[in-house]
Nucleic acid binder design. Structure first.
Lengths: 104, 104
DNA sequence: CAGCATCCGAAAGGATACTG
DNA sequence: CAGTATCCTTTCGGATGCTG
């Protein structure tokens, strides 16, 4: 896996998913189709605790829960993007190094 | 803790320690005074496998083992610096958010 | 729909003792 | 000096089932 982790395993993907605007709990589970409800909840609760996302319960007809990026969370997109840029740029070197290491 | 992790727990500190030049195993343990030999070895081995650090055994009088950053490892200093900059800039907001969350 | 409760296996981290 | 070996605890992620 990537040598970067932002928070826990799903935090960076949540961050990326929320970049385009607020999403509901079940909407987040679609792109992150490998995550269970429990684990996603844990991630979101932690990010909420840290002020990165804002959780809003709608009492009206939609009856949904929406998660959105706070300004603080939005400010984290930049370091995340830098990390992703590094990864895409150096991914091959990393794989090469691993292969060279297992088969010298 | 920080919402960023580069590789495992000690990788970012190792990276920072090696920024100034090659260091020996025991020299690395000084600034990282909470790490045991086993865990530091694990970190270093992984970083070596990934091509981030280079391990050199000196056969001459010094009889030491030196670790140095590879060009790839050196290139990781930039995303690391960006993450650190974010952290120092937003550390207070993060702490405030946590405190606000425990005592509303 | 948006979770919570419970149980489980794997991995990470660390303490301690020993070695070439 | 630079590790290795063993054991142990904590943490993480996930599976499953149930709930307002």
């Amino acid at each position: 896996m990537l040598p970067f982790r932002f928070g826990d395993k799903w935090a960076p993907l949540v961050l990326a998913c929320l970049e385009g605007g607020p999403r509901r709990f079940s909407e987040l589970r679609v792109p992150l189709h490998r995550v269970t409800a429990k684990v996603l909840t844990q991630s979101l609760r932690r990010m909420e605790r840290d002020g990165l996302v804002v959780r809003t319960v709608h009492a009206d007809l939609k009856r949904g829960v929406e998660y959105a990026l706070s300004p603080l969370g939005r400010s984290m997109l930049e370091p995340l993007a830098v990390a992703c840029a590094w990864a895409t740029e150096h991914w091959d070197e990393l794989l090469d190094a691993r292969e060279r290491h297992t088969s010298p």
